[in-house]
């Protein structure tokens, strides 16, 4: 576990950063360092910030059009031949409609394709429910061999993308359209490790992705109510640093997970699987409540779908009272 403490003033003053911009920047850097890094795009390279790579390395940027299944298949063939392909689309389309190709062409054969799912979660905003992918982690968690990476701000996107590229396994990288505070640095995240963003004694808040902002705010709000909240950030859902979660659960005795994903089969489930077997601990799993999203602005949607500031505070206070 990496300890990287963020004070209230650090948090308040942190500027906004873009996860997808960080990803795009890392791709270009990878392109410079490694001749065999290539991209495969399905008409959404611009939205995923893959265009800078395509401009700098046009011979290494492959555009397959609106054909996600073929994108994954071709990437698998390229990976098998020694290239390092980043195959990107919106998460709603890949893995949304490429589960079979990721399962067989990528995972079963262990071809190290880096599947990039952009615009994940409700925070994609006005596009509405069809594009608000909240089931991708459930799909990817179920597959053997694939690693799952969820950057939470611009700097972590750079560090995690670079780390993922060099690993000899398939990976799923989940990106968001929404911006989040630049809270981290390259030192603050490490592949396969959890980052402690704030120490605390009474409850452990575990989060992932853009929800790190609201989770930090929640931790400070809990402090104001006299509850000392620890915050852990998960950057790789697979591999998951189980020891860090178990140790935290034993320290505080209460665990709350927050994720921009269905409350089933995502972060909360992963944490519950670990704790229920190794350190049974009362848990509150906060995610999308088994429902589809709708159009709206990203911040409005987070408010409407269970992550409004006062609602979160009330929910965790009730959980804490219940588990005295």
């Amino acid at each position: 576990m990496i300890k990287y403490h963020i004070s209230r003033s650090d948090f308040v003053s942190a500027p906004l950063s873009s996860i997808r911009d960080g990803f795009g920047e890392a791709l270009v850097e990878l392109g410079r360092k490694h001749w065999n890094v290539v991209t495969v795009m399905a008409d959404l390279g611009g939205s995923l910030r893959m265009q800078a790579f395509a401009e700098q390395f046009p011979e290494r940027a492959f555009e397959v059009g609106v054909a996600e299944q073929n994108m994954i298949g071709m990437a698998a063939g390229m990976a098998k031949e020694g290239l390092i392909p980043f195959a990107g689309s919106f998460a709603a389309f890949s893995p949304g409609r490429t589960f079979d190709q990721i399962r067989v062409s990528v995972c079963y054969s262990n071809n190290p394709v880096k599947v990039v799912g952009g615009h994940a979660g409700v925070t994609v905003g006005p596009d509405g429910a069809t594009h608000q992918m909240c089931e991708d982690l459930a799909m990817m968690r179920a597959l053997p061999n694939i690693e799952i990476v969820v950057p939470s701000d611009g700097p972590s996107a750079i560090a995690l993308t670079e780390a993922t590229a060099l690993r000899e396994y398939p990976a799923y990288i989940r990106l968001s359209r929404a911006k989040s505070k630049a809270l981290l640095s390259a030192k603050a995240v490490k592949f396969g490790e959890v980052t402690q963003l704030k120490p605390g004694q009474d409850v452990t808040l575990i989060t992932m992705g853009v929800l790190v902002d609201r989770t930090m705010q929640l931790a400070f709000d809990l402090e104001d109510e006299g509850i000392s909240a620890e915050v852990l950030l998960v950057s790789t859902l697979k591999p998951l640093e189980e020891k860090a979660l178990i140790a935290a659960a034993k320290r505080t005795g209460r665990v709350v997970t927050l994720e921009e994903h269905q409350k089933y089969n995502g972060l909360g489930s992963a944490v519950a699987e670990v704790l229920s077997q190794h350190a049974p601990t009362p848990m509150e799993i906060i995610g999308i409540e088994d429902t589809f999203g709708e159009s709206g602005q990203s911040e409005e949607l987070l408010d409407a779908y269970g992550f409004e500031r006062s609602h979160l505070l009330k929910r965790v206070l009730q959980f804490a009272a219940r588990t005295q």
Binding site: F62, G77, K80, S105
Partner: peptide, 19 residues
């Protein structure tokens, strides 16, 4: 390659040819 679910090998082969 691994195959069974149909259609996937053709894409993989195109990827191998491009590579």
């Amino acid at each position: 390659t691994s195959s069974g679910p149909l259609g996937q090998g053709v894409s993989q082969a195109v990827g191998m040819a491009v590579a």
